[in-house]
Write a protein that binds this DNA or RNA. Sequence first.
DNA 1: GTATTAATGCACTTCCATTGCATGGTATTT
DNA 2: AAATACCATGCAATGGAAGTGCATTAATAC
Lengths: 138, 138
Amino acid sequence: MDNIEKLFASKNIRVTAMRLLIYKFLAEKQIAVTLSDIENAFDKADRTTLYRTIKTFEEKVIVHQIDDGTGITKYALCEKGCNCDIETDLHLHFHCNNCNETICLTDHKIPQIKVPEGFVSENVNLVVKGICDKCSGY
Amino acid sequence: MDNIEKLFASKNIRVTAMRLLIYKFLAEKQIAVTLSDIENAFDKADRTTLYRTIKTFEEKVIVHQIDDGTGITKYALCEKGCNCDIETDLHLHFHCNNCNETICLTDHKIPQIKVPEGFVSENVNLVVKGICDKCSGY
DNA sequence: GTATTAATGCACTTCCATTGCATGGTATTT
DNA sequence: AAATACCATGCAATGGAAGTGCATTAATAC
Ligand SMILES: [Mn+2]
Ligand SMILES: [Mn+2]
Ligand SMILES: [Zn+2]
Ligand SMILES: [Zn+2]
């Protein structure tokens, strides 16, 4: 996993054990995770470190934040070469009402949304809620 | 405002002074409000009462909850005869990055969103962020 | 190896949301 | 109208997530 170290270097952040672990954790999971998910996975680590690690990742566009309406912020790894900060790149998120998991639908981009005259759209958050493929028995 | 009393009766909730006041407050405002907005408007009233009043309103589909991504839950009156619980009736919300106000765009319904096979869409939350008409000087 | 700079750990804080329980008020029954 | 049942309110306390200050420790640069 030398790749991760290169990624960190390209973002000008130091390579630390904790950061590598958290990155791998996020990479393994195919779903968006909360801070307490990470806490539970690394219960020997300090909460603040986990918090600041994820905030650093966010700042450096290694992860993006997801507000799925549960009231708890979730995070997921950004796609390689994504532009999560640019509106046109935004994908939608799916929250399963059954298993409570939230996933990125990275190749489902958000359609152009019409707003009334005088309004300027800068950013769009779109969350679809329902039943995921695993839970629908597909 | 005898109408409000009839509305309450139709929802099987008692008519109380506080409920009437809060309802009127929401009706006057054209924007979504937080609980602390209501607290500030009625500083002699108890927070819990305000909280439970708005929760009752929500349960009875008198108001709907709005998650605009600020992390603080907002509320706005439902349209007369709305079906806020049904997907097809959902409108979008606009959050102004300048004045921080959030409004319902009640006649901007959310377009049909395609989800991958196996996924079942039950509900959609769509928040557009940008500059509102007042702030854009329209 | 030393200096510099950034990451970590611990304690503490703030803010919003939510609940338990006692009390007060409104509607319903007799 | 009095008694009863039911619901609304007020006060106090709690929980959970998010964020900050500061001392210590580890990673990079020289
Ligand atoms: Mn995503
Ligand atoms: Mn609305
Ligand atoms: Zn599911
Ligand atoms: Zn504005």
